[in-house]
Design a protein around this nucleic acid. Structure first.
Lengths: 228, 228
DNA sequence: GCAAAAGTGTTAGGGTTACACCCATGT
DNA sequence: ACATGGGTGTAACCCTAACACTTTTGC
C-alpha cells in the first residue's frame, strides 16, 4: 500500500506541435489567459486529470486547438518535474511532441492559439523555452533517422517542399542534387506523374507521394540521412 | 490558481542501472519486499516525495543500493504514466537511466539488490520489462552516438573490454580490426604503455585510458559509430 | 613447442561531396 | 527573349567491410 501523503502531485501536459506551411517551420503557441504573464506566449498546455491518460489529454488539447484533428504523430518528449515549477504545488509537466499536416488542419476560430514561425519566436513563459529546445532537437534527430519528416507534408508535394522542410528541421543547407539523389535512392518517393505550377512564371514542379510500404518499413527500422 | 483536485497523483522513479563487469552487461534488480509478487524481481524503485526533485530521488536510490555512489551518468528515460499502473491511485513513474563503473562500486551487504546479467534476466514485475526494453534501446543509441560507453569502464582498460562492451550494447558482432581502427582514429583513446596479463597463459594486453579533452568534445557534439 | 589471446594491413566497393548548366514555363 | 525556378551527372575522395596470419606470453 502506497502511503497517501505521496498523492499530492498534479500532472500537466504541454504540446510542441510542429507544422510546415511549405516555407516555414511553425509551432502552435497559446496566449496565456491568466496572470501572471497574462497574454504572454506559451506552449498549449492543460492539466491532466488524475484518471486521464496522457494520450487522452494530448488529444483533447489538439481538439481544442484544431477544427479537425487529422492524423498526427505524437510522442512523449520528456517529463519536466522540477518541484518548484508552479507556486500552487508540484506540477509535473509531461511534454508531448506532435507533428501534423499543416495544410490539412485549421485552427479554431477565436481561440488563443496561433501558428508561429520557429525562426521568429518570442520567449515563452515558464520553462517552455527549455521544452521547445528539447523538441527541436528531437525533431532534428527524427528527421535524420526516420521518414517522420513526412508527417508534415500533404499527400502530394513537390521536391522543393521536402527539401525546404529538411533544411529547416536540420538547420543547414542541403545540396539539391545530393539530397534528391539520396531521397530517390531510398525508394521512399513515388512520382505521381502530375505536376503543378507553384508560382507563375516558371517551370511547373513534379508532385511526389510516399511509398507507404517503404515508408512503414523505414519507420520501423530507421535509416540514416547523414548529410554533412 | 490550479484547482486543488488535480493534486492527487503520486510520483515514483525506477532506475535502470547498467554496469559492465568485463564480460557481461548487467543491470541492478531488486527483490520486491511487498505483496503482491513478493520477492519477484523488479527495477530498483522508490516513491518520490512531493517536494523532492527527481535527481535527489535518483541519488538517494543509488545510495541505498551502493556503498559509495561513485561518479555515474544518469538521465531521464521516460515517464510511464498509464493511469492504472497502481491500484492505490495514480502513480506516475519517471524512469531513469544510469550507467556506472562496475569495478568502482559495491552493492550494500544484505540488501535486496543484485546485479543481473542482461542476457539472462527473468521477467520483471509490473511494467518494468517495458521500461527495461526502452532503456536498452537508449543504451544502444548512446553507445553509437556518444562516448558514453565509457562511463562503464575503469580508468584503464583493455581493448578487449571496450570491444566486448560495444558488442553487448549493440547486440552484434563487431570486426576486431575495424573496430580498433575506428576507435583509434577518433583520438579518444590514449595508450598508457602499460600492459596487463588478464589470464595466465597468453599475451598481456595493452591498457588504454580516455583522452578527456576529446571525450568531452565528442560528448557534446556526438559522433557516429555506425557499424554495420 | 603448444595453446591462447593480442595485435596488425590491404583491397574492393559503395557512399558522400562538390560542383554548373540546360530546361520548361509564363509573360 | 527573358526571367524564374526545376531538373540533371560526374569525378574525387573517404569510409566501410571483409578477411587471415603473426606475435607474445605462460606453461
Amino acid at each position: 500500500m502506497v502511503e497517501s501523503n505521496y498523492f499530492q502531485v498534479a500532472l500537466s501536459s504541454s504540446l510542441v506541435v510542429f507544422g510546415f506551411n511549405g516555407k516555414q517551420l511553425l509551432i502552435v503557441t497559446e496566449k496565456r489567459k491568466k496572470s501572471p504573464f497574462k497574454r504572454a506566449p506559451m506552449l498549449p498546455s492543460k492539466m491532466v486529470l488524475p484518471e486521464e491518460s496522457l494520450e487522452s489529454a494530448t488529444n483533447s488539447l489538439l481538439k481544442s486547438i484544431f477544427c479537425e484533428t487529422t492524423e498526427n504523430h505524437t510522442e512523449q518528449l520528456k517529463a519536466f518535474a522540477n518541484p518548484y515549477r508552479n507556486s500552487d504545488g508540484r506540477v509535473v509537466n509531461i511534454a508531448q511532441y506532435a507533428v501534423l499536416r499543416y495544410a490539412a488542419t485549421q485552427l479554431k476560430m477565436n481561440s488563443n492559439y496561433q501558428w508561429c514561425d520557429l525562426e521568429d519566436l518570442p520567449s515563452l513563459v515558464f520553462d517552455h523555452d527549455e521544452i521547445l529546445t528539447f523538441a527541436k532537437e528531437r525533431l532534428k534527430r527524427r528527421v535524420k533517422r526516420r521518414p517522420i519528416g513526412f508527417h508534415f507534408l500533404p499527400k502530394e508535394f513537390t521536391f522543393k517542399e521536402i527539401h525546404t522542410l529538411y533544411e529547416l528541421a536540420l538547420r543547414k543547407k542541403l545540396d539539391k542534387r545530393n539530397f534528391r539523389k539520396k531521397l530517390f535512392s531510398s525508394d521512399l518517393l513515388v512520382d505521381t506523374n502530375k505536376s503543378v505550377t507553384v508560382e507563375e512564371n516558371n517551370k511547373p514542379s513534379n508532385l511526389y507521394m510516399f511509398n507507404t510500404k517503404e515508408y512503414e518499413k523505414l519507420t520501423l527500422k530507421g535509416y540514416d540521412f547523414s548529410f554533412k
